[in-house]
């Protein structure tokens, strides 16, 4: 079988019944079938009985196709879409506590915060805690730049995504 070997990151959006068993089934699917999952984000939608799960998974085209199909088999799942190649809004929230023992470091962090449109949300004698929202590349780039200063602690939410309205489609009414 012709399997393309580019293991790129795919961003998959799933609409699912807001039931305790539903999330468990989705997570178990990844472990039982040996799929790799990079991040997973869950929250309810405009309809509180429906949750949106956004997951980032790595794999070749065949694996991703299987993940999408296996997700669709789950009884509580409404819709599954691979958003990777869609025009989409794609955001991640980062909270990071950075060492700023010297005035130079404080100044450098503030400069980066301004450039990236981030915000300092908590301050102590020798740390700044910064919040940044952006796409994955922005968050990665920011982290790369502040790394030399020393990261005390950080938390990332994983990505959430939605198809752009301009693109002329919403999540799609059809469950393929």
């Amino acid at each position: 079988m012709d399997r393309k070997c580019d293991h790129r990151k795919h961003i998959i959006s799933v609409l699912v019944e807001n039931q305790p068993g539903a999330l468990a089934r989705i997570i178990e699917l990844f472990s039982s079938r040996g799929y790799n999952i990079e991040s997973l984000n869950v929250g309810h939608t405009e309809d509180p009985t429906i949750s949106r799960i956004t997951m980032v998974a790595k794999g070749d085209e065949h694996t991703i196709e299987q993940i999408v199909k296996q997700l669709r088999r789950i009884i509580d799942v409404f819709k599954v879409r691979d958003l990777t190649d869609k025009k989409k809004l794609d955001r991640e929230l980062l909270i990071v506590r950075i060492n700023v023992e010297t005035p130079e470091k404080k100044e450098e962090v503030m400069r980066l915060v301004e450039i990236f449109g981030a915000q300092v949300v908590d301050v102590s004698k020798d740390t700044y805690t910064v919040e940044l929202t952006g796409d994955e590349e922005q968050v990665d780039a920011f982290l790369e730049l502040i790394k030399p200063m020393g990261i005390r602690e950080m938390a990332r939410t994983g990505r959430v995504a939605m198809v752009r309205a301009l693109h002329g489609e919403t999540f799609g009414e059809q469950k393929e």
Partner: peptide
């Protein structure tokens, strides 16, 4: 009947 079986092992 199960679309996940199609293309799983053989194209």
């Amino acid at each position: 009947i199960d679309s996940a079986e199609i293309g799983k092992n053989r194209h």
